[in-house]
Design a protein around this nucleic acid. Structure first.
Lengths: 164, 164
DNA sequence: ACAATCATGGAGTTAGTGACTCCACAATTG
DNA sequence: CAATTGTGGAGTCACTAACTCCATGATTGT
């Protein structure tokens, strides 16, 4: 039996979710390294040929670069902190439209008297602001206490060497 | 040819939009007055029998009351400033779920390492905050300059009488 | 009491599209 | 040249928002 997502509105698409996950995966690679489609798909449990489409959009959008042939794959084009969710959203979904008449109000039959459109815009702005201020870096898993301790020691050693 | 809404994610349902429009319509009636389904539907260009369903939800949700029989119809149960968009959303759409694994993270295969869910929650909170702070009153059309002038004169006359 | 008028309830129907698949093709490299 | 990798696009499928229909129940004026 396939358990499915009871659909309610205001939800994000899987494509967008997949894109973000994949980008985070790429961001976690030691810098500059690339990963093939299959690796990403398997690690993130994303259907391979569907992810192909998503990645193509990311390539077209300039967020990742792809190399063909043996040892090919995808890698980030910019540092994680320079890639915002807004950019990802724009690449995957385009312009955000909460309602039909969001920008082309001429089509809206309530053109003149419509008082709600301002609220929808406020909503859109709030969402986009969060998208704009959230970068891939914010989505990277925080180092555990142990890891942070290691980093600290590393730093200390550096300072010690610098002082010597 | 039927022109249709190019669907992009993060959009609000028509049901919700219809609900809000209808409530605003009711709020504009001189207080206590009720309007029948047909009146609302026609004024707002909403398919009659679809609106019936929406209104039923609003009744069940306690936002409007309905009276059957001749001269029946719907009217607001509370003052416009006491009805928030959040309440309307809850009645029409239920709990907001931006992604599948929003609350039942056990189902999420990335349970442990998932760093994005916090962003989705931030998003949800931002949207819900706007919904919570926006009431029907905020959606009522502002009086035009002319109307405001009339109101002002009305007030002056009152004061004049009071002074006399 | 009755008929007109109103909402209620629930079982359809439909079109659109998000999510996913498949396959042929193009580029790269050992 | 053969293996490996991404590209491109047409095609499929299931789900559901949006909408319809009809039978039923409540209320009120006459």
């Amino acid at each position: 039996m396939i358990v499915r997502f009871r659909e309610k509105r205001m939800q994000l698409s899987k494509g967008f979710d997949y894109a973000v996950r994949s980008l985070v995966f790429l961001a976690l690679l030691s810098d500059g390294a690339s990963a093939e489609l299959r690796t990403i798909a398997e690690s993130q449990n994303i259907p391979l040929s569907y992810l192909a489409k998503v990645m193509r959009n990311l390539v077209r959008g300039g967020l990742v670069s792809s190399t063909l042939g043996r040892d090919g794959g995808y890698c980030l084009r910019r540092a994680p902190e320079e890639i915002t969710l807004m950019q990802v959203y724009a690449v995957i979904e385009g312009e955000m439209r909460l309602v039909e008449c969001m920008e082309d109000q001429k089509n809206c039959m309530f053109y003149k008297g419509c008082t709600q459109v301002s609220v929808w815009h406020k909503l859109k702005n709030a969402v986009e602001e969060i998208f704009r201020e959230t970068t891939l870096k914010d989505l990277l898993p925080q180092p555990t206490g142990e890891q942070r301790l290691t980093q600290l020691k590393e730093k200390e050693r550096k300072y010690a060497r610098a002082g010597a």
